[in-house]
């Protein structure tokens, strides 16, 4: 299982800004190692963000998302103390779920 996603959710002016930094290699599958062998692709393919159990963002990643994917988005409403959950799954079927509360 990968390392924890760092998440910060801040409520301001009736919106909640959610910032997250996932820890993942995001290997494209297009690079070769020193011996000339292709390094296999290893990427997060799907991300889901929940606000108190309701889906507020779904993302599908291709190979061009940078290493340690960074995402920011904004949802309407959101109150201090409410839960934000970030789930991802990668092409090796590794999964991770991390949570924070709105600040």
């Amino acid at each position: 299982m990968g390392e924890a996603t760092r998440i910060r959710a801040t409520a301001k002016d009736g919106q909640t800004e959610v910032k997250m930094l996932m820890q993942h290699e995001m290997e494209t599958g297009q690079r070769k190692d020193a011996a000339g062998n292709k390094i296999p692709a290893w990427i997060i393919t799907d991300v889901k963000v929940l606000h108190e159990g309701r889906t507020v963002l779904e993302a599908q990643f291709g190979t061009a998302v940078s290493k340690n994917p960074y995402l920011v988005f904004r949802l309407m409403g959101g109150v201090k103390g409410e839960k934000i959950s970030v789930l991802w799954t990668d092409n090796r079927d590794d999964k991770r779920m991390d949570e924070t509360v709105i600040d």
Binding site: T28, A59, A64, V65, S66, V72, F73, R74, L75
Partner: peptide, 29 residues
Amino acid sequence: LVDKNINVLAANFIIPKGVAGFITTRIKI
């Protein structure tokens, strides 16, 4: 999307009701 990348679609986001039309991320070009 990035027109010259080997895989042109970098990422896709489904935006439900109640979520702003706003996304920031970092990609490879």
